[in-house]
């Protein structure tokens, strides 16, 4: 798929994210908007998936380890055709398949339940091991937050992936530099992320996480790496695409009001 088309999907995803959060009245716009371009490139270009067969054994898997960015994942899955786009309106409502954080038991296309930070990479390790045992060539993609790198389990998982040479794991760090309580380097610095991951035995690239071409190129390069897991540090802007949300930590976990939805959608027209 051409990168322009992917960019169009990304813009449509951002519109859906704003609309669904406006309707739900709660949720996490900032980190959803920062991860949008990565998810768009994966679902509309990079990943081998079939929305008509969400449990396809040979599919690539995606684990949204920063599960609070669920609206971005839901927007991608709906636009890809896993479920009706109208269902996005039910985000976080009682009885909805679109839970506050992704639930693999409820929603088709969700490969792993997530939400409690730090756990996604471990599950990816298991999926990659299973693929190797079964002689399958699927890739397992993971999207982590940069604040999430404060979790000890992430580093247990990092060691495991490198030790077992899980080269079919391609993980992203959505490096938007903000977490609920402020700047990641003020709260508890996980930096220097690149050096840390490299010293843990990973192949590491650092890119502009809003440049579709760079994301696609980095994925292709990661696939060339053998016997080593790959990490892509995607430098992003929290709240990307909505002027009043960009780089504002206050938009980590607050839903826009009706007027703000209107303004955001006009900016994303």
């Amino acid at each position: 798929m051409s990168l322009n088309v992917v960019a169009d999907y990304a813009k449509e995803m951002r519109r859906k994210i704003i609309s669904m959060l406006g309707l739900s009245g709660s949720g996490h716009p900032g980190g959803s908007l920062s991860a949008t371009d990565i998810l768009a490139e994966l679902y509309f270009d990079g990943m081998r998936v079939d929305p008509s067969n969400p449990k396809w054994e040979d599919r690539d898997r995606l684990i949204l380890s920063k599960g609070h960015a669920a609206p971005a994942l839901y927007a991608a899955l709906a636009l890809k055709g896993y479920f009706p786009v109208e269902e996005l309106d039910n985000l976080r409502k009682l009885g909805s398949r679109l839970q506050g954080h992704p639930d693999m038991k409820k929603l088709p296309g969700v490969d792993m339940s997530s939400g409690s930070l730090g756990q996604g990479l471990s599950a990816a390790n298991g999926m990659a091991l299973a693929g190797r045992l079964d002689d399958k060539d699927y890739y397992v993609y993971v999207i982590m937050g940069d604040g999430e790198n404060q979790e000890g389990q992430v580093w247990e998982a990092a060691m495991f992936a490198a030790h077992y040479k899980l080269d079919h794991i391609i993980a992203f760090v959505d490096h938007n530099r903000l977490q609920i309580d402020g700047n990641i380097t003020d709260v508890l610095s996980p930096e220097p992320l690149k050096d840390k991951w490299q010293s843990f035995g990973w192949n590491v690239q650092q890119i502009d996480g809003h440049n579709i071409e760079q994301i696609a190129t980095a994925i292709a390069a990661a696939k060339q790496v053998k016997a080593q897991p790959s990490l892509i540090i995607a430098d992003t802007i929290k709240g990307k695409g909505v002027s009043f949300m960009e780089n504002q930590v206050s938009w980590h976990g607050n839903a826009p009001k009706a007027q703000q939805v209107e303004q955001a959608l006009s900016e994303l027209a």
């Binding site: 471990s122 990816a124 389990q153 998982a157 495991f160």
Partner: peptide, 28 residues
Amino acid sequence: PERFFNAGIAEQNMIGVAAGLAACGKTP
């Protein structure tokens, strides 16, 4: 030996690895 994985002294990751294996049809 090909189906045994030592996770080292890292139980939290070990449980997650098992979850991923189970999600792909294994019985860990």
